[in-house]
Design a protein around this nucleic acid. Structure first.
Lengths: 197, 197
DNA sequence: CGCAATATTGAAATAAGTCAAACCGTGTGG
DNA sequence: CCACACGGTTTGACTTATTTCAATATTGCG
């Protein structure tokens, strides 16, 4: 393999575009996520955008090799990270293909809660969510208008509150159940936090 | 990393399911594709189904290590394969999120043509396509009824013919243009076939 | 203060879904 | 050799989730 770029601070997203301008967000990145792997002779099919002030760490091929050699757990950790990243992506396919507007948005809210919890960036089922409704629409394959109405529906049902980029899940159990969120694909977890052997 | 399972003959697909029974196909696998990577302590989030009589090759951890050591190109090849597999998945997200029924199905037809060509399993823009309309619906997030009507539309426009599991793209240039298919994400290719250095 | 980007609301249009029936090829068994 | 059952395809009529268009708040911010 080759070098890696890791997001170390802030939020970002992976963007895919169609020649006629249609935009699809194919994943949100938070600290700890690998946003890109360098592979020789392969063109990138996506672009990255930061949502907030963010910083990145670049690990070169050699650095990575040395790390792997010195700490075998590094290689294993990368393998797990890769697997989870694929699982998240596959799950996004499931979302777009099978879930309706309510379920898509609710599922994203739940997923980000668990992922942020794992890195200590969520408390009490609430977290900073620096994503506009327009971007949320680009992520869920919906219209901004419909995203808006759906969020209002969630508010009316007392499931979430969202204002000033602060999201709070008011009834996680009910929301998770309604949108069929099962955190298993994010990794074997305990109370929302990864357990490393 | 760990062991690998490679499809060596036949077609298969990766299936995701929701607890209420909704099914989403998250990718078709053809010979040469890695259908699964063994990662310790990680539960699989998908299942695999064969569409035709198929065979698999299992490469154990040790075998793989030995291969990689003896032939450096193996490691690089795997990295490229991984990258392309992710790109295909991301593209499927783009499909489901932004393309309409016609574009989704047409895009899949184009993608499979190029991928099959690379392994010598397509000729003259035609190939064996062992996927029922029901499965095609599960892959595209559409209804079988709507898939049917869309294919009829394609037939009526003289773009494809499909009967007895044999698909022929009658006007590839026009179809690719209509559905905005750009093979770049499948790998730098020449005439549909991968060029390895 | 006033712009520019977001968020919200309403009404009308449409792509895709649902339900239900008919059709078709094909293999099987009487 | 016909009848029938089976999985898949096709068709029609009707419903609905989501989009579109367009206008009106609202908010952050230089």
């Amino acid at each position: 393999m080759s070098g890696l770029h890791i997001l170390t601070k802030g939020w970002a997203y992976r963007l895919l575009m169609l020649p006629d301008g249609r935009r699809q967000i194919a994943g949100f990145l938070i600290p700890g996520d690998i946003c890109m792997t360098e592979v020789p002779d392969v063109r990138l099919d996506f672009s990255l955008s930061s949502l907030t002030d963010s910083t990145y760490l670049h690990l070169s091929n050699q650095t990575l090799d040395r790390l792997r050699a010195a700490y075998p757990a590094v290689g294993e950790g990368l393998a797990i990270h890769n697997h989870v990243a694929s699982a998240i992506l596959r799950n996004w396919v499931l979302n777009l293909g099978q879930r309706n507007a309510f379920e898509r948005i609710g599922h994203l809210f739940c997923e980000m809660l668990i992922r942020l919890r794992c890195i200590g960036m969520a408390e009490n089922d609430g977290y900073h969510f620096p994503v506009t409704q327009i971007e949320l629409a680009e992520a869920t394959g919906l219209t901004p208008v419909h995203v808006n109405r759906t969020i209002q529906d969630m508010r009316a049902r007392g499931l979430v509150s969202l204002q000033n980029r602060e999201l709070k899940i008011l009834d996680f159990a009910r929301l998770a159940n309604l949108v069929m969120f099962d955190p298993a694909y994010l990794h074997p977890v305990t109370g929302g936090c990864a357990q490393d052997g």
